[in-house]
Every structure is written in C-alpha cells, then in structure tokens.
Design a protein around this nucleic acid. Sequence first.
DNA 1: TCGCGACTCTGACGGACCGTCAGAAATGCG
DNA 2: CGCATTTCTGACGGTCCGTCAGAGTCGCGA
Lengths: 221, 221
Amino acid sequence: MAVERVENDADVMATDGRVIGRRAIQTRRRILDATASLLREQGALDLKVIDVAREVGTSPATFYQYFADVEDAILCLAAELVERVPEFAGQIDGRWADDDGLDRARALVGSYTGFWDEHGAVLRIMHLRADEREPRFRRVRNEYNNQFMVVMVERVREGQAAGRLPQGMDPDATAGAMLSVLDRVPSYRESFEKRGTSREAMVETIARILFGTLTGVRTPT
Amino acid sequence: MAVERVENDADVMATDGRVIGRRAIQTRRRILDATASLLREQGALDLKVIDVAREVGTSPATFYQYFADVEDAILCLAAELVERVPEFAGQIDGRWADDDGLDRARALVGSYTGFWDEHGAVLRIMHLRADEREPRFRRVRNEYNNQFMVVMVERVREGQAAGRLPQGMDPDATAGAMLSVLDRVPSYRESFEKRGTSREAMVETIARILFGTLTGVRTPT
DNA sequence: TCGCGACTCTGACGGACCGTCAGAAATGCG
DNA sequence: CGCATTTCTGACGGTCCGTCAGAGTCGCGA
C-alpha cells in the first residue's frame, strides 16, 4: 500500500525546487510561526514580508527562499490546519442519534470554538481567498470543508431515512448551512457577549440547532 | 422630527476636512466605483491605490484627497451597503407565521443571494476587518447585522411564545446562527453547484432551515 | 466678456517595501 | 583540516506610498 504524502515536513522544498535540510526546515518553521503570530496581531491586509523577517530576526531574502510571498506562507499554514479537522469532524459520528447526541453536539461546538479562537486569523484568510476564487486556497478549503461535509451529510441521510427529516431538504445544502454556522459563530461570539448573551447560552443554542437540523431529533424544552 | 444623516452625498468631506463641491463629489464617486470594481476583479490583498487611480484615469494624489487609503474607501462602500439592508431584513416580518411563510423565506434567500453576488467583495472585507477587530468596520458591521438581528429575534420570540420553539434556545444566538447561514451560503453556492447541488435545491433547503429554525413551524415533507 | 477667488487636481519627491542575485557564512563529511 | 554542499544575506533596481506646492479648472460678479 503506497503512502502518499502531499506535504511532509521531511521533504519540503525551497522556492527553487531543491529539497531542504535540517537547518532550513527549522528556519522555515520559524518563518511560518512568525507569520501566524503577526497575522493574529496585525491582520492580513498590511502584513509585509519585511515584518516577518524582522520578527524571525533574519533577512527578507531568507523568506523568499521558502515562500513566494506572504500569501504563500498563509496557504501553507492553512494546509497544516486541514490536518487538524479530523479531531472535530470525527465528533460528528453515528452516535449523534443516541440519547446523549445533544451532549456530543455541545462538546463539538465548545472545542471547535476554541480552535477558531486559536487559528481564526489563518482560517479567515483561507475563506477570503477561496471566496475570491484563488485556486490553491479553494483546494485547501475544499479538503478542509469536505471532512465536515461527509459526516454531516451522513447524519442528514440517516435522519431522512428514519423519517425525522423532510425529504425536501437537500443533504448537501443542509450540511453546508450547518458548516456555515459552525464556522461563523465563533466570530460573532464576542459581539454577542457584549450584548449580554453568555458563552454558555451561545454554545447551548448552536449545539441544539446543529443537532436538530442534522438529525431531525426534536430537542426537549 | 429631526432628520439625522450620518453620511450624505451632499456634504461629504475631503481628508483635510473641507466640505467638497459638485465636481469633487463626482470624482469621489468614480474612485469608489473603481475601487468596488477592482475589488471584485482582483481581490483585496493586492489592491493598490495606484491601480484605482489608473482605473479612474487620475493621479494617485487625487485618491488621497478623499480617502486615507484603500481600506478607507472600502469602509465607505460598506457603509453604503448598510443602507440596502432594509430591502432584505424587511422581508423577515410577522407574516412569516402565515400559511405562505415559507414562500417569504424562499424569496428572501433568492434575493439576498443576488445581493451577495453583486457586493460580496465588499462584504467579505467588512467581515474580515471586523473579525480582525478593526473598530470602524466593527461599527459598520454592527449596523448591518443588527437590522437582521432585530427582526429575526422577533420571529424567534413569537415562536417561543406560541410554544413552537423550545425555551432553551437563546433568541439572539439563534438569530446569529441563521444570519451566518444567510451570509455564508452565497459563498459556498458555487462549490455546491460543482458537486451537483442545483441552485434551486440550495435555495429551497436554506429557506426551510431559516423558516423552521426562526419560527418553529414544521415544514411539510 | 473678462478677471478674480475658490475649488480641484497633479507632478514630483523622499521614503518604504518588493523580489533577485552573487557571493559570504555555516555546515558536515572524508 | 580542507573542501563541497547547503544556507543565509547585503545590496540593488524597481514599484508603490503618502505629501506638498503649485498648476489647472470653474463659477460668479462686474
């Protein structure tokens, strides 16, 4: 069975195509970390290569040895986040139909919100550039989203088969809508807290919406 | 009754604070239109002041007479879009509880999707910068979102009062979640069409989710 | 019609960042 | 230790930024 590795820290390439060694891998990693850090602090629109270089304590020319531009580095960070998705998509399994299904939804919403708090800066650019039709970000976002879509669609089909969900609802569209909720609510959370909606109420409500919409099981009052 | 106008084409100011005349208003408008156009075509991350100036056929210095930078111009475009929200938020009224409520939801989803197709480039930056905590964009987004929130919360409260929706769901959080769906689905639409989900199925499903979640009325099979 | 004052636009400039390349520095292997 | 390989960087031409003084345009009164 062939093991396919699209991106592996062990054989990453420089922009000129050569395979890089141990020291270079460390440098590249520091550049990526600095990019993520600055992205969180100062946003994407005025993040300059020279800022990253200064943060790492290196020359701008070094940056260009590993990435074509800042966006290229962000793409790389986004690709790394794709690897994290199973932690969350894996939570949306067949046991959602069990009695404690709603609890599973609550756990998902809570943990995924934490993930967004940590990596939102990168995810936002992934979504922006994908929405702007940038092909590489589209591919990465598809890999990201599809992992959620597959399991959500499964739940919807099960709900429809059991007669709990109407046939008139398209499983893919339903899953897409719920993925939207999962991905955007963390952004709104802070605004809501200012308006007096507690984090707990937020998680509880979103969990009920996801659970109810994906499974068709009616939640108790 | 005092008429308050926060932003009116009749008394817009230049960056130096002076009120501008007829010719200047035209120039400013052409700059805004060019910004919106280029934003659609080439995205936000590499939209330069000089690009806008060239598109308008003017000097970069002229741009700086009216806007501090490209982001400032986009903020202005976003503020203009806030004026358009009533067309859509107004559709989410008390008649959603009537027999043809689902039809109203369908109409909303269809028309708002068109709005996103046209102005998505600006709305995306509004969301990005607001998520990145930029205060001016936060204010504009709040004005934008609140119009939807108010009416959606009304529907949820009515649904709860009528016993159709569980009390355990927070009206604000529910409205926020549905606003997420409304705002993000247009972005995903194209991806879904590639995967075989028709626009009609998309609109129908999203309408059912919004309608069902906001009113608690069960949709027929 | 002309001239004047107010409004609007722009050429030109110092500065910042981009992206590249030749060669300097570090590494590690025999 | 000497040398080949890998990695890093100083320096440079080019683009864009953001500003200002002054040139261009317009409307209005005489």
